[in-house]
């Protein structure tokens, strides 16, 4: 009796909240509102896996409610009571079996999508990818466009329908580079250049952030992302080349110092700045002739144990 009352009471409290949540859900859900192929596939993957899990979860929830209701102890209840019933091979086989089947299906989907959506895998496109080199600094993002020779801070402009090849590093504590509407994140780590392919399918304004804690003003590391037509992009590049100041080595040193910054654009940057940023931390792990183990590791990237070791060496070499 008491429990039913309590459940009703809870339902009354929770119902408006749920409605409120549902209303809030419709807009603003960046992750569920993808604007590019990667984010779209990741969204689909979330939905598929949710549905698969619900095949087990929803019946379990209903079953819980049913059992708790039916087998509550009350006067003159008709439901059976079997205090010594403790084992049933059939039943147990069923609930070992069902999760195994569901997880197997999900596993197949996951493995396939893990290979399909490997961040460093180039996107299929008729367009040649555009490279943007991303550096996490305390507490701002530096974007360099090596093909255009320009650089920006806290502002990312990209042409739509063109795959973007992000090369990501950090001259700061480890960060994570994330543009929710375009696709998943990738760590920004010193001494390494991580590759991440993303693409925007439509023109529009999005935002990105640093998703991994880097200190005091970490919360200020949002940046604007704008995807435009190819023509507008070229127009913008030209404007930056013509009107913005150059980023000097001295200027970069200033930029590395801890601070928060507004948007900035630069008409040029010192040659090899990104590579230098990467190798200044990677150089210490040289002396590969002493490391037969790691040499092997670079070839076959399957092993997990010393993975991190090969990493530092690997990407450093890639950029020397």
């Amino acid at each position: 009796m008491k429990v039913t009352k309590a459940i009703k009471r809870m339902a009354i409290v929770l119902a408006p909240v749920m409605l409120f949540l549902a209303a809030g859900c419709t807009d603003n859900m960046a992750v569920l509102d993808p604007k590019g192929p990667i984010a779209a596939q990741q969204r689909d993957l979330m939905l598929i896996s949710t549905i698969l899990c619900c095949i087990v979860v929803v019946p379990v929830l209903l079953l819980t409610a049913f059992i708790v209701w039916r087998y509550r102890d009350k006067e003159g209840r008709k439901a059976a009571y079997t205090p010594r019933w403790e084992h049933s091979f059939k039943l147990e086989a069923i609930w070992w079996g069902i999760p195994i089947i569901i997880i197997t299906i999900l596993a197949v989907i996951t493995v396939r999508s893990t290979y399909a959506l490997e961040p460093s895998k180039p996107l299929e496109s008729a367009q040649k990818p555009l490279t943007v080199q991303v550096t996490s600094l305390n507490w701002k993002w530096l974007f360099q466009y090596p093909e255009q020779g320009i650089a920006t801070v806290n502002e990312l402009k990209i042409p739509k329908d063109v795959p973007i090849r992000f090369e990501i590093t950090a001259d700061s504590p480890m960060n994570s580079f994330w543009i929710p509407q375009l696709g998943g994140q990738m760590y920004a780590m010193s001494g390494m250049a991580m590759t991440l392919y993303l693409q925007a399918d439509e023109a529009g304004e999005y935002w990105g952030s640093g998703a991994n804690f880097t200190g005091t003003h970490f919360s200020s590391m949002y940046f604007d992302v704008e995807s435009t037509t190819q023509a507008d992009f070229e127009q913008w590049v030209k404007e930056v080349q013509d009107k913005s100041p150059a980023l000097t080595s001295e200027g970069y040193k200033q930029l590395v110092l801890p601070s928060t910054e507004q948007k900035m654009t630069f008409s040029s940057f010192p040659k090899g700045l990104f590579e230098k940023t990467v190798t200044q931390y990677a150089s210490a792990s040289g002396h590969h002739h002493n490391m037969p183990l790691m040499e092997q590791e670079q070839e076959q990237e399957n092993s997990t144990e010393q993975k991190q070791a090969s990493h530092s060496g690997h990407s450093a070499e890639g950029h020397q």
């Binding site: 210490a284 792990s285 040289g286 002396h287 183990l293 790691m294 070791a309 060496g313």
Partner: peptide, 18 residues
Amino acid sequence: FAAYIVLRGNTNGGPGPA
């Protein structure tokens, strides 16, 4: 041991085991 095996090549320009 694991740390040693991972790091033994990282001599930072200093002397190595040999």
